[in-house]
């Protein structure tokens, strides 16, 4: 008796839902997240890595040039390509997702401050396995920065770097960067792209990774930590690229511009907020970034020198970057209903 009633009800429900499905018009007024993901891959991630990889290849060529004809001019050319590669890196550092995440690319490419003692001992020992996590502090751009901008006379440095041990380590550092970049660049093939674009979790992941990068590596790593926000006393040698020194502000600006471009890109997060009637959040975030960039205009090209001369000015930049963190992590995540962590525990 009851079973009959139950069955008839289930039948009714199926009928009802079946009908409803065909009644609902095919209006797609949802925000097109798939398009957002496609744009991220096609317009930012893939071109970014391609550009980065070719900059590294250029660096490798100039390294060979220097080796075959060591001179201050070939060293200058090597230094220039180093800087260009470092800048290209800032454009992709925010995409630690997929293969890059698996490899821990950011850790091997840009862990600073570099450990000078370790770099020296690696140069002596030769044939170091740079895939070991313990070697992260002695490789990547920070190690190159130390080696290429050693504070000794130019001709002495040419001699030092062209010696067999140093030359071998330079080769090793550059080929390691190339290897990582190639692996990540190759991973964004057709299958990877489509599985990323079609996975509904990709938006949450990408945004979480982006915010993690922005908060930890851009805000804290490039500005907060050297300015002493987390230690009480400033740590000028903890800036990015402290040996070449005069490039550090530029690296920060490049990274900030890359983050902003990602945020404001066509059909990206700013548009998504706009779609959710929360455009004012995107405007507020951009205002803080623009203000940070305005303040950066009066800052020394060398963040190290700036910290030593007038740290308060850099702390003002930090404050603007920090205000954006609150808007990104609190207001934006809530507006887009993106979970802030990966703990898949139950809610209630």
């Amino acid at each position: 008796m009851m079973l009959n009633r139950l069955l008839s009800l289930i039948f009714l429900i199926t009928l009802f839902t079946g009908c409803e499905q065909s009644f609902i018009p095919e209006t797609k007024d949802n925000f097109d997240r798939e398009l957002m993901l496609e744009n991220w891959v096609d317009l930012h991630i893939k071109p970014g890595y391609a550009q980065y990889l070719s900059a590294l290849n250029e660096l490798a060529i100039k390294n060979v040039d220097f080796k075959t004809a060591p001179s201050t001019s070939t060293l200058d050319a090597l230094r220039n390509t180093y800087l260009q590669a470092y800048e290209s890196w800032q454009m992709v550092a925010l995409f630690e997702i997929g293969e890059a995440e698996k490899l821990g690319m950011r850790g091997y490419t840009n862990t600073y401050p570099t450990n000078i003692e370790k770099v020296k001992s690696n140069i002596e020992q030769q044939n170091i396995n740079l895939a070991l996590p313990s070697t992260r502090v002695a490789q990547g751009f920070p190690a190159l920065d130390y080696m290429l901008f050693d504070k000794i006379k130019a001709d002495e440095l040419v001699e030092k770097l062209s010696a067999n041990d140093c030359s071998a380590y330079l080769d090793l550092l550059i080929s390691r960067l190339q290897k990582l970049a190639t692996q990540v660049n190759d991973s964004w093939n057709v299958e990877e792209r489509s599985s990323f674009v079609q996975n509904p979790e990709s938006v949450d992941r990408m945004v979480n990774d982006f915010l993690f990068y922005y908060e930890k590596y851009l805000r804290a790593g490039k500005v907060g930590i050297p300015a002493g926000v987390f230690s009480g006393d400033p740590l000028p040698m903890n800036v990015e690229a402290p040996y070449s020194s005069k490039y550090s502000k530029n690296l920060l600006l490049t990274a900030l511009n890359a983050a902003q471009a990602f945020f404001n890109a066509d059909n990206s997060l700013a548009d998504y907020l706009e779609f959710m009637d929360k455009g004012e959040i995107a405007i507020a975030i951009n205002n803080h970034w623009e203000q940070a960039k305005r303040l950066l205009k009066d800052i020394d090209p060398s963040l190290k020198d700036q910290i030593n001369e007038n740290n308060l000015q850099l702390l003002e930049v930090y404050d603007e970057l920090q205000k954006a963190v609150v808007l990104l992590k609190v207001d934006m995540l809530q507006a887009l209903s993106i979970q802030v962590d990966y703990v898949d525990a139950d809610g209630d």
């Binding site: 804290a220 907060g224 987390f230 992590k329 609190v330 209903s337 809610g347 209630d348």
Partner: peptide, 25 residues
């Protein structure tokens, strides 16, 4: 399942004698 609440809290440790401070990760 009654509300959506999101927050951000940054702690500052201050040395009351010297006024020096640092933030906590």
């Amino acid at each position: 399942m009654l509300m959506e609440k999101a927050g951000y809290a940054e702690f500052k440790v201050v040395d009351a004698a010297t006024g020096k401070s640092f933030k906590v990760d």
